[in-house]
Amino acid sequence: MPSSSLRLFPVPPYLRGAAESWLEHGDRTPRKPRLASSVVLVRDAPRGTETYLAYRRGESPLGKVAFPGGSIDPGDDDAATWFGPTPTAWAKSFGIDDPRLARRHVVAAIRELFEETGILLAGPDESTLLEANRGPEWMAARAAIASGDSSFLDLLTRRGLGLRTDLLRPLSNWQTADFALRRFDTRYFAVVQPLGQEASLLEGKGSWGQWRSAAEEIAARNTTALGDEIGLPDTVGLTLSELTVPQVELVLEKLAGARGCIAYLASRRPAAVFQPELVQNDGGYWLAVQLSGVGEGSAQRGR
């Protein structure tokens, strides 16, 4: 049987007001979460497994520092050439019965990864992947998609490309804590950086994004090194737990202990819905997370 342990993560500064109000006024109906996808982009490096982290403005349910990701768009339902597991197979891996919903999450994951990093999981056939993603035309395409002026799937169709969904691996499904004013129901995926493609910030939108050593970030988690290095008003002086949401920190822990990218992607994970619970302890507000010892899990609700 896997071991279990309860972990407490501090409520980030920008969410403390909402946490205080929620506990002060008692249980209320939580806001409906928006469907979202997020991608853990990884690569092997001399200093250990690295992942791409980026700063997110505002009060993102994904964290101030997070993996690429965002909400599902209506355009994610459009037709596209599809390589890899069928939507039905993806639904089974998610532990759900809705292939259309599974398809939306997969498309959103590939689209958000392209928008935010330029990494494009697409190719002309099931065994070929785009080998170059740099240049002004690709940056312009990313900007147009991010602004809603262009369709991601239309771009692929015009270029004769299909979605390489076989390159993605499902990780976990997290719902934002009930008290938050903005909530996501997020499917997390992982993918290895494709050969010949480089990650970059979207011009005019991104403030900070870097490849970071998971082991080094975990080793420095109780310091303010990362927040101070980013150097923005809402990151300076904050620890890793205050910059991220629990699922990001837990993924970093798993990456830090993994023997390379392939081993990390090959790990088996349960199909379950996870959600932190808001608690008060020692005069502070915390997110209670129940670890099952398998995957990047938290307090389970349902399923």
Results as ranks from 00 to 15, higher is better:
residue 261 C to A: 15
residue 163 L to C: 08
residue 241 S to A: 15
residue 114 F to Q: 11
residue 84 G to M: 03
residue 275 Q to S: 11
residue 231 G to Q: 01
residue 199 A to R: 01
residue 291 L to T: 14
residue 126 E to R: 15
residue 266 A to E: 13
residue 263 A to D: 10
residue 167 L to P: 04
residue 259 R to W: 02
residue 106 V to W: 10
residue 184 F to W: 01
residue 68 P to H: 12
residue 24 E to W: 09
residue 135 G to S: 05
residue 159 R to F: 07
residue 153 L to F: 02
residue 206 G to V: 03
residue 282 D to H: 08
residue 186 T to K: 01
residue 81 T to A: 05
residue 267 S to C: 08
residue 292 S to R: 01
residue 95 G to F: 02
residue 170 P to S: 09
residue 191 V to C: 02
residue 280 Q to E: 12
residue 26 G to R: 05
residue 138 W to K: 11
residue 277 E to L: 00
residue 250 L to Y: 07
residue 104 R to E: 10
residue 176 T to R: 05
residue 98 D to F: 01
residue 68 P to S: 14
residue 276 P to V: 00
residue 269 R to K: 13
residue 86 T to G: 09
residue 259 R to P: 02
residue 40 V to K: 00
residue 176 T to A: 08
residue 88 T to F: 08
residue 267 S to T: 13
residue 91 A to Y: 03
residue 54 A to R: 15
residue 161 L to H: 05
residue 177 A to K: 07
residue 106 V to C: 14
residue 120 L to Y: 03
residue 120 L to V: 05
residue 35 L to A: 10
residue 225 A to T: 08
residue 83 F to H: 10
residue 121 L to N: 00
residue 163 L to K: 06
residue 302 G to P: 03
residue 279 V to K: 00
residue 36 A to M: 07
residue 198 E to Y: 06
residue 157 T to I: 07
residue 63 G to H: 11
residue 103 R to E: 03
residue 149 D to M: 14
residue 286 W to G: 02
residue 56 R to P: 08
residue 254 K to D: 14
residue 295 G to T: 00
residue 24 E to K: 13
residue 247 Q to T: 08
residue 268 R to M: 11
residue 5 S to L: 12
residue 175 Q to E: 11
residue 164 R to D: 03
residue 94 F to D: 04
residue 231 G to Y: 01
residue 139 M to V: 14
residue 177 A to Y: 03
residue 103 R to N: 02
residue 127 S to G: 14
residue 8 L to G: 06
residue 243 L to F: 03
residue 184 F to H: 05
residue 128 T to V: 07
residue 37 S to C: 06
residue 88 T to A: 15
residue 100 R to E: 14
residue 253 E to R: 14
residue 249 E to Y: 10
residue 11 V to T: 00
residue 138 W to C: 13
residue 13 P to M: 02
residue 278 L to V: 02
residue 162 G to S: 05
residue 155 L to F: 14
residue 114 F to Y: 15
residue 102 A to N: 08
residue 163 L to T: 00
residue 115 E to W: 14
residue 13 P to T: 03
residue 260 G to F: 04
residue 220 A to W: 00
residue 73 D to M: 15
residue 2 P to W: 07
residue 220 A to S: 09
residue 48 G to P: 01
residue 59 E to F: 14
residue 77 D to N: 15
residue 48 G to V: 02
residue 153 L to P: 01
residue 209 G to I: 03
residue 76 D to G: 11
residue 303 R to I: 15
residue 98 D to W: 06
residue 139 M to F: 11
residue 47 R to Y: 00
residue 77 D to K: 15
residue 45 A to Q: 03
residue 40 V to A: 07
residue 106 V to N: 12
residue 40 V to E: 01
residue 29 T to R: 10
residue 197 Q to A: 05
residue 12 P to V: 04
residue 212 R to M: 09
residue 302 G to V: 04
residue 117 T to H: 10
residue 230 I to R: 04
residue 281 N to V: 09
